[in-house]
């Protein structure tokens, strides 16, 4: 948000007459909180929420939701959490959940989140990852150079993911709904006994030196002393940190995400997609 390409306005304009579609009437400050505030209003009224964006937008929406089922469609820069799914499939899956045609206990899951907190009380929250970079300013926000990455924490680890989740995924496996997190400290690949090949950013595959990694359960944390660096969330720099103690940990009870595959499997199994049948 704001919807600079006018996708939402086009949806409203092109909607069939018998479907009531309206834009949320809200003022925009042009910041992440806009997404959260919009999500809060959907939480109060909607039965499902479809998000067009990447990890950052999904996280911001998640912060405004509690139990509202979310279906995030991969249209952002960093897309670990959103699904690369056809728009019609996504819409139909959301409709099956929203209408109660499938049991949302079988088709949704709670996604863990991760957080970094400084001793002085500031914090950064990520849905897939919170990263620590040794660049000393936020600048253009994107985490550009893998050589500057000092480590961080991930809520999910899979080698087919992107960013820090890809690095963690080369060493261990962690499903998004598993409790806990994986914390990593990275070093220059030449100075490390352990290197992995990972997709660290869109269009960037590289070898990364891993100094250590730890599986953290809920309640456990990794503590790092930072002289001068930036904390990022989901691939974007967020908070400058100097002479601080930073604690990385997982956050349970994150957003409730819809698995579109599970929705259709459930619907087919229960015969929902056949005319005249009951839900699963």
């Amino acid at each position: 948000m704001p919807d600079t390409s006018g996708i939402a306005a086009n949806v409203v304009e092109d909607a069939p007459d018998d479907v009531s579609v309206k834009l949320l009437d809200m003022s925009l400050a042009g910041e992440a909180a806009d997404t959260r505030r919009a999500a809060e209003r959907f939480q109060a009224k909607a039965d499902a929420l479809v998000i067009l964006g990447g990890d950052g937008t999904t996280r911001d929406a998640a912060l405004g939701c509690d139990t509202l089922p979310l279906l995030s469609v991969s249209t952002g820069t960093n897309n670990v959490v959103p699904s690369a799914v056809d728009g019609t499939v996504a819409g139909a899956a959301a409709a099956l959940v929203a209408s109660g045609a499938v049991d949302d206990r079988e088709t949704t899951y709670r996604h863990e989140m991760v957080k970094a907190r400084t001793e002085s009380g500031e914090s950064v929250m990520g849905i897939a990852a919170v990263e620590l970079s040794d660049r000393s300013f936020i600048g253009t926000r994107a985490l550009l150079d893998p050589d500057e990455m000092l480590g961080g924490i991930v809520s999910r680890a899979n080698p087919s993911a992107i960013g820090l989740s890809s690095v963690a995924g080369a060493l261990d496996s962690l499903a998004p709904n598993e409790p806990g997190a994986i914390a990593l400290r990275l070093v220059d690949e030449d100075a490390s006994d352990q290197t992995v090949r990972a997709i660290v950013a869109p269009g960037m595959t590289t070898r990364v030196g891993v100094k250590e990694y730890h599986r953290l359960s809920d309640g456990e944390s990794m503590v790092v002393e930072v002289d001068d660096g930036v904390l990022g969330a989901d691939g974007e720099r967020e908070l400058e940190v100097t002479n601080e103690t930073v604690e990385f940990h997982s956050v349970s009870d994150g957003p409730r995400l819809i698995s579109y595959e599970a929705v259709f499997e459930c619907a087919a199994r229960a015969g929902v997609l056949k005319d005249g049948s009951e839900c699963c």
């Binding site: 300013f137 936020i138 600048g139 253009t140 926000r141 550009l144």
Partner: peptide, 8 residues
């Protein structure tokens, strides 16, 4: 933000 312009 001078850092953002400089980086870009």
């Amino acid at each position: 933000d001078i850092t953002a312009v400089n980086e870009a």
